[in-house]
Simulated scan of single mutants.
Amino acid sequence: MSNGNSTRFFDRRSTALVVVDVQDGFRSYDTFAEVAAAAGRMVEGATILGVPVIATEQYPKGLQHTAPEVGLPEEGDGVTVVEKSVFSAVRADGFNLAGRNQVLVCGIEAHVCVAQTVLDLLDRGVSVQVVTDATGSRHANDREVGLQRLDRAGAVLTTVEAALLELCERAGTPEFKAVQKVIL
């Protein structure tokens, strides 16, 4: 099912990347290293392409800050870090897409904070792609059910490579060559 605009081609001028709660407090999850590394590739590619990054941190006093593997550039260099206690990033103080109407979302946990963020974005008419290889949950079943729910709600499921190459739009450019090094 589609919300009418979720399958539209994403371009870097209209897109933001939201990295939800990839924090050190979730390091015990079996898939944490894989998710953090993939989120890091998304952040690196987004930075190359000039796509703004919003990283959220759920209760950082208890769950600590964004994992270093994510490789967040300094805040202000196209990066905003939003601390939150609500599950949906959209409902957190300081969350602002700055006029972007297409959002790539990845992070932890697929069935809670990622899901509620995506559903709120869809409700606001934002086109959403969920980067599946950069999204995880503590339990595999929760991840799968969360992703199925988001697919049915109208989000498009994608991967790091597909998302970054879609934002590149063409081969042969300096940005493409830089992104190619990130995804190889």
Rank of each mutant, 00 (worst) to 15 (best):
V35E: 07
M42V: 08
G40F: 00
G78W: 00
G50T: 01
E57T: 06
V20E: 00
E57F: 07
H65V: 13
A36R: 02
G76M: 07
D24P: 01
F10Q: 04
A36M: 09
K61E: 12
K61W: 05
A67V: 14
A16L: 09
E44Y: 08
G76T: 11
F26C: 13
A36T: 05
Q58K: 04
D11P: 09
L72R: 12
G62L: 06
E57W: 05
D24Q: 10
D21K: 09
G78E: 00
V70N: 02
K61N: 10
E34T: 14
A33D: 14
G62P: 09
L72S: 09
V51T: 06
G25T: 02
E44L: 08
L17P: 09
M42R: 05
E34D: 13
A33H: 12
R41Q: 15
A55R: 01
Y59N: 12
E69K: 12
P60K: 04
A38W: 00
Y59S: 08
A38Y: 02
A36N: 05
P52Y: 03
P60T: 01
G25W: 06
V51I: 11
T66I: 06
R41I: 08
G45Q: 01
F10E: 01
G45T: 00
D24S: 11
S14H: 15
E69W: 07
P68S: 13
Y59R: 13
I54Y: 03
T7E: 14
G45R: 03
V20T: 04
F32W: 06
E44K: 14
I48V: 15
P60L: 04
P60E: 00
D21E: 10
A67E: 09
G45P: 01
V53W: 04
A39P: 10
E75N: 12
R13C: 02
G25E: 04
G78A: 07
P73W: 05
A39G: 10
P68I: 09
R12I: 04
I54S: 04
V19K: 00
T56S: 15
F9M: 12
A36E: 03
R8Q: 15
R27C: 03
T66V: 10
D11G: 14
Y29A: 15
V70M: 04
I48A: 08
Q23W: 04
T66Q: 03
R27A: 15
F32G: 00
M42Q: 12
A38Q: 06
F26R: 08
L49A: 01
D11C: 15
E69A: 15
F32D: 06
A39E: 03
E57C: 06
D24I: 02
G40V: 01
E57N: 07
E44A: 15
R13I: 01
G50C: 00
I54L: 11
R12V: 02
P52C: 02
L63Y: 12
F10A: 04
T66F: 00
G78P: 08
P52I: 02
G50P: 00
A33G: 13
R8L: 12
D11Q: 12
T7H: 15
F26S: 13
Y59W: 13
E57Y: 08
E44P: 08
A16V: 13
A36G: 04
A33I: 10
Y29R: 05
V43E: 01
G45A: 01
R13L: 11
V43D: 01
P52R: 03
E34F: 11
D24T: 10
Q64M: 14
P68T: 13
L63M: 15
K61A: 15
A38H: 05
Q58N: 13
